[in-house]
Design a protein around this nucleic acid. Sequence first.
RNA 1: GGGAGCUUAGCUCAGCUGGGAGAGCAUCUGCCUUACAAGCAGGAGGUCAUAGGUUCGAUCCCUAUAGCUCCCACCA
Length: 872
Amino acid sequence: MPKELEKQYNPHGAEDRIYKMWNDGGYFTPSGKKGEPYTIVIPPPNVTGQLHMGHALDDTLQDILIRFKRMNGYDALWVPGTDHAGIATQIKVEENLRKEEQLTRYDLGREKFLERVWDWKNKYGDRIISQLKKLGCSCDWTRERFTMDEGCSEAVKEVFVNLYEKGLIYRGHRIANWCPNCKTALSDAEVDNPEQNGFYWHIKYFVKDSDEYVVVATTRPETLFGDTAVAVNPEDERYKHLVGKCVVVPFVNREIPIITDDYADMEKGTGCVKITPAHDPNDFLVGQRHDLEQINVMNDDATLNEIAGKFCGMDRYEARKQLVSELEEMGVLVKVEPTVHNVGECYRCGTTVEPLISDQWFVKMEPLAKPAIDVVRDGTIKFIPENQSKKYFNWMENIHDWCISRQLWWGHRIPAYYCDTCGKMVVSKTDVDVCPDCGAPMRQDEDVLDTWFSSALWPFSTLGWPNDTEDLKKYYPTSTLVTGYDIITFWVSRMIFSGLEHTGKAPFDTVLIHGLVRDELGRKMSKSLGNGVDPLEVIDKYGADALRFTLVTGNSPGNDMRYSDKKVEASRAFANKIWNAARFVLLNLDEDTKAEIPEKLELEDKWILSLYNEAVKGITENLDNFELGVASKKLYDFIWDYFCDWYIELVKPRLFEKGTDSNKRAQSVLAYVLSNTLKLLHPFMPFISEEIWQTLDLEKEPIIVAEWPKYCDCLNFEAEEKAMDKIIEAIRAIRNRRAEMNVPPSKKAKLIIVTNASDVYNASTSVFFEKLASASEVVFADGCDDDKSVSIGTDSAKFFIPMSDIVDTEKERARLTKEKETAEKEIERLEKKLGNPEFVAKAPEKVIAGEKEKLEKYTAQLKNIEEMIANL
RNA sequence: GGGAGCUUAGCUCAGCUGGGAGAGCAUCUGCCUUACAAGCAGGAGGUCAUAGGUUCGAUCCCUAUAGCUCCCACCA
């Protein structure tokens, strides 16, 4: 029994109700029995806070793919989960602690602090999950994971130990980026390098026991306490006589040698460079080559230490200021030169990082990078759009060893154990309490692993690895990874080499890359700008379907997009349009109407079925090729322009005439096209499509598991499609002409059709002109006797509307003449083109046929117009 | 310094591996036509950044230039 729908679609209530129905019905969990597997693992959102627009885009794309594949009979699995996000979360919790209780993590101690972080995780992790549900994500919640849950932790230990045993993880006393605020080492990838205004301070270093001096320049004068050499280029004639001598570092009065190293660039500055191995990555390498002492002058909070003498305890910037002024007083400050340089900043807290030497763990990258490059090179893994792979190659081919230890508390503790008695170190999956060598107690490494270390394992750790589980066997390798271009290096690259190294397989076959969602002005959405748009608020206001459709339409792979409410409004209007189309259909459907194609079809039925068929083909191909935006646009056009604006209008006369066979058949076609179109719509707008589907009540199963429509040659009605197009063209031309003359639609008038195309214009198609072109009646004739009539000429017919009261013959003549000229110009162009022997010889047949057809059309139209002018 | 992307209607953007460019919004005109005013019908609005090249034919391919955005590396 057809039910009635509200006049406007109201997503509230409906969305939660439908989501619950899907969830309770177990539709998100793959049956595991039939169908090829199709797997996506979600890029796990950080538990730091809440979903933003970027997540909404990312997850919408994934949900579209999952729903599409599910409807196509795949055993579709979408694994959800969240990321512990080491630094980010720890900072959040610490901030919170400071604000709420004026406590630091040290006040609480490691164990108590971690309890707080877990509380935070539980609270915000749940919030994120509920947000994903609001968006309509059809994740399999029975398989929800967390990067620090038991299974993922097991995987992390397994990987760490494996890599260590293979010699691919090592511990080194090396220079690394240090965040003095977070008090941890950072990988290169975790350091931003924005431009900043700064200075070069040129400082004199006197040669020992001499009046001679060299001038070195530095942007960080406070590091001079750690200088252990001055380097010049071996080719530099200016300083040859000084090599081997010593200069004296101001303040500390340390004597340091002048050495030669290629690192010193003769072109830069004075050609002399001070070497501070403990505070600069390049200097560190120079220091290694020359066996220089590494003098650390800083504490872990970037205050200077006792090496700095009276500057001890001062913050680096304060010390710098005072140092500079004292250097000036001493007369050794030669020059202060303003400059713009890139300064490393912690990507989480923005504090300027300090290169410091410490004990850190590293992954040896070179052997891992090679196979990872190969699988993308040979197409085992495909990036979409393809040019995004360049970013990947660029990074992989210039890879540095990966610093994986972090001096944080929140994260996977490094499974290394030390014996303070005999110095033994053990790396082990299981806890080691007692030294195997001397029996003394062992302590575990205090540090935790970089967050990305566990994220890198996500595609297989979530499926049960290192255990050989059923899930792993069935769903790994996964199929598609959907993510933004901003984390290709952070994450995608690391998943690829990890997958290859630990499972022997590439973790996915396709990487679908999208861009950023920016604000209306094209700025990155950020907390500091306060320009972020909360997806939940948008969903609340416009509905999840509208947001989803906005994000997918008009967005192409790899490109950024701007968010604006206007766009969502347009999507909501689309949802409402579908809603009302369905409402209309329901109002006109009999109880027993079935959504099937009747044997006998009218012209307009064949027309819409043919267009529907093409839509199925196009949309399916687009989705198969990850052209989601193009697919959604096609669907939009089909639904709005063809189904609503034309087909529904065309069948109204039949629908309003109850009790006839024609009426019944119109109902069937309407129901057929609508219900199948809803299926096409479902991946994009899951809620409204389900809501209408349930109301239509055609099948028992919900639309989420309905079968995706198939293209069929049997619905290919080329001739009828063309005939109907001619009628539509004629109706448009008539409306057009009436509008030009300001004739209101309510003013009906007789329409005389002069034509040979009786297959197109006949008694059964006349009704279209009456309904849609304001014809009071349609008369077929050989010509029009009334000289005061509006004339319209298409290629298939001449139309006359006698309207003596408003027709000005001369104006008609002018108008027709203009149309004639347009047609002539087109004909001239086409004749020229077709007259070009090279074009005819080289262009593909299809193109030539198309041009010929156009020529015929314009020729026929010209003939009609000319005859009408002659008859005026 | 190396690399990538972008430049199409007033605005935001599509354009499916070269055959006379589209949408939404905005704007203008006319409509409360019994699904929808979140709507209907119609109009106006583009040397597809610039200059060359390839081609029968270029918004699309190549080269150069300009402007914008981003990534990587790095300078004392």
